[in-house]
Amino acid sequence: MSQVLISIYRYNPEQDSKPRMQNLEVEAPGDRDLMVLDVLELAKAKDPSITYRRSCREGVCGSDGMNINGVNGLACITPLSKAAGPARKLVLRPLPGLPVIRDLVVDLSQFYEQFEKIKPWLINDEPPPAIERLQSPEEREKLDGLYECILCACCTTSCPSFWWNPDKFVGPAGLLQSYRFLADSRDEATAERLAELDDPFSVFRCRGIMNCVSVCPKGLNPTRAIGKIRNMLVEQGT
């Protein structure tokens, strides 16, 4: 067993007038590298009032995005050794820039609203064939790096442009999904989709800071997708 020090952001609106950091020590098995979520579960066994979201515990559901020692990531696939370093001290805060509901749980409404704004569904009004719509492997390959998004919000909440304009800038996750449909050979709403993005804020607030790319737990590249949308908008404008 070895000691892990955790500093957790605590805020329960029923009890606290303002947030505070709570320091805890947890005994962790020394024989393997735990994930940050494992450490949180040990902490919660000691203090059941510690609050966070979690589900799949394998990095595919996107529930446990949080700020881990200053960097957004998924607690379940971030190894303790990587996050805490040799000092074995974890600092856990909620994803930045969104209202906190309690402890590490943020209100994701704005994030989801921006996602819904881009019409995240396939639009094709032609009557479908009796079998599947055909798509070549090359056409399908264009969706790789896009469809894998798990909506964890790590990217969008690390983006200064989103912090500044969360109501008007779609943000990296929403734009990645927008391009996922723009790039799909089966989707017929390209013009309509672009028209809805063609304003100074929705896309063009992206300043290429690339925080989204460095934090994405799935290794996706929203900045590149935003660049492609930008090009499509510019081409369409000429």
């Binding site: 396939l122 009796a130 055909l134 492997p137 399908r140 969706l143 799909d184 089966r186 989707d187």
Partner: peptide, 23 residues
């Protein structure tokens, strides 16, 4: 089954593809 899977594909599910464009 087949009809149900086609419906998912029509909804946009990004299945992997064969050389002739099928699922």
């Amino acid at each position: 089954g087949p009809q149900t899977v086609y419906e998912l594909e029509h909804m946009g599910l990004p299945f992997s593809r064969t050389a002739n464009g099928r699922i």
